[in-house]
Amino acid sequence: MREAERVRKFWQGLGLPGIIDVHTHFMPKRVLDKVWAYFDSAGPMTGREWPIAYRTDEEERLATLREFGVRAFTSMLYPHKPGMAAWLNAWAADFAARTPDCLRTATFFPEPEAADYVADAVATGARVFKAHLQVGGYDPRDELLDPVWGLLAEAGVPVVTHCGSGPAPGAFTGPGPIGEVLRRHPRLRLIIAHMGSPEYSDFLDLADRYGGLTLDTTMSFTDFSEAEAPFPRAELPRLDDLRERVLFGSDFPNIPYSYAHALECLVAFAPDEEWLRAVCHGNAARLFGLPVG
């Protein structure tokens, strides 16, 4: 069976109109090329072979998602140094304008201009932000980011945050630093990428504490992730308890396995089909104000 048929069979079997994927990457070509080169080199943050499953040009990648039946997706992108975020945001705004099924994505970095360009992005239609503490190597508690977090909390714009310590710990990863941000800004709509791997339990605790916090399934539960950072089986009942605050994410195109595999692996961990329907479509539709049917 062709992969697109496997993916469509998955969501059609659940009675869904398609999938909403909150964690996909589209970036300027020269930036994405550098990201792929890093994975090719088995860089220090990965330390293992990581073949890119969907190494194609932008139009083909878009066509692939649409053939799969992905109705909405993001263009996760992130800076690793000052002076980069505003340029990435301009690119992402243009990408979303010519890609109507993409939720317009933006990002930021701790720098004096951050509050201004984040405010501009929100005012002009950004739907979701990405904060990558591991690649960016910055402290989310930096005073330059305090007005950014405050603005995003007030606006209710979600932020997908890679703050877990997988695949390798950073200086400011783990639940501690981002937990302090949540204490300052408890209304923040944080989406914890990768279920907070490998500190799954700690991030589930934060979700219990803060009602605006959700988790995305990106790479979690797959054979690739289970080999080195397995989801603790004792925590499975908490996935059921948080069924309205778990979102499907894939990390497309930067995954070392098929998109269908990521979806099919959810089934083994899902409490029931209603959970799958919520995770793969309903929860994100509600969060982003998208059509439910």
Score class of each variant (00 low, 15 high):
A42Y: 03
P186T: 07
E226C: 01
F26D: 03
L190D: 12
V181G: 11
L287P: 08
D94H: 05
E273W: 09
R245N: 13
L247T: 03
P44Y: 07
F231H: 05
V122W: 08
T74A: 00
M1A: 14
Y210E: 10
L14V: 07
G15R: 08
R189K: 15
F10R: 07
V22K: 06
V148Y: 09
A114M: 05
L145N: 10
F288C: 14
D202Y: 04
G293E: 15
G137P: 14
V292R: 15
A97D: 12
A85F: 02
V148Q: 13
L133I: 10
P112S: 07
P271K: 13
L188M: 04
P271N: 13
P100A: 10
Q12W: 06
V279D: 12
H185E: 01
K130V: 10
F269K: 12
A63P: 01
E273N: 15
E199C: 11
D116H: 13
L242V: 06
A262H: 11
A97I: 00
A53H: 04
F10N: 01
E49I: 06
P79M: 06
P175T: 05
T74S: 07
D216I: 08
V35W: 13
A93D: 15
L276F: 15
D208I: 00
E235K: 12
F224W: 12
L266F: 06
I191E: 07
L215E: 05
A86W: 02
R184Y: 00
A126N: 10
A284I: 04
G83N: 01
V279N: 11
C102Q: 07
P28L: 09
D94W: 00
F95T: 09
F39T: 09
A207H: 09
S250Y: 03
R141W: 07
L103Y: 08
T161D: 09
W149Y: 08
R127H: 00
P186F: 10
G15P: 08
Q134G: 12
L215G: 08
I20M: 02
W50T: 04
V122H: 09
W11S: 02
F26A: 02
G125W: 07
F108D: 01
D205H: 09
L103H: 04
Y138V: 12
G166E: 12
A106Y: 06
S250V: 03
T46E: 13
V118A: 13
D142G: 06
L206M: 12
F109H: 14
E226V: 00
A114C: 07
F95E: 10
A284D: 11
V279K: 10
